[in-house]
């Protein structure tokens, strides 16, 4: 892992946030103020990105196990983000079970959207332009 990898990580983070933040802004339940939605859009991705980019690759033989890596990573990330979101906002703001389910579903959807966009980006554009 070298300087180019960290640059990729930074750019990928920016792209991910540009997809997930609007999703959370629109999709989270009504009990959350806009500043909290915006905060969550940046913060949740920032928390899980080091695990996805720096930790998990160490457990897989890449690129051979790329699919397995993605499966584990994209399962871990939504779960972790839901847990973080609950710790940060779960007790502070009045909510119902329905609202909680909506919040978790929105977070998961945001991650699926960014994952899908990421795969399209990797296949059609790639990262050579960054080097």
């Amino acid at each position: 892992m070298d300087a180019a990898y960290f640059r990729m990580m930074a750019v990928a983070y920016a792209i991910t946030v540009s997809i997930e933040a609007p999703t959370l802004l629109v999709g989270l339940s009504r009990g959350h103020p806009i500043k909290h939605r915006l905060f969550a859009g940046f913060w949740l991705t920032a928390c899980t990105y080091p695990i996805l980019w720096l930790v998990l690759p160490g457990f897989f033989q890449l690129p051979d196990q790329h699919v397995l890596y993605l499966a584990v990573g994209e399962t871990f990330v939504p779960i972790a983000e839901c847990v973080l979101f609950w710790f940060a906002f779960g007790k502070a703001e009045p909510r119902s079970q329905r609202a909680t389910i909506r919040d978790f579903a929105t977070i998961t959807l945001a991650n699926l959207l960014s994952f899908g966009f990421g795969e399209l980006f990797n296949q059609n554009i790639g990262w050579q332009w960054l080097e």
Binding site: F39, W43, A46, C47, T48, P50, I51, W53, L54, V55, L84, F87, A88
Partner: peptide, 14 residues
């Protein structure tokens, strides 16, 4: 370092 970053950002945000 990755785990530490995650813990820092997570705890900091909370």
């Amino acid at each position: 370092a990755g785990v530490a970053f995650t813990l820092a950002l997570g705890l900091g945000g909370i």
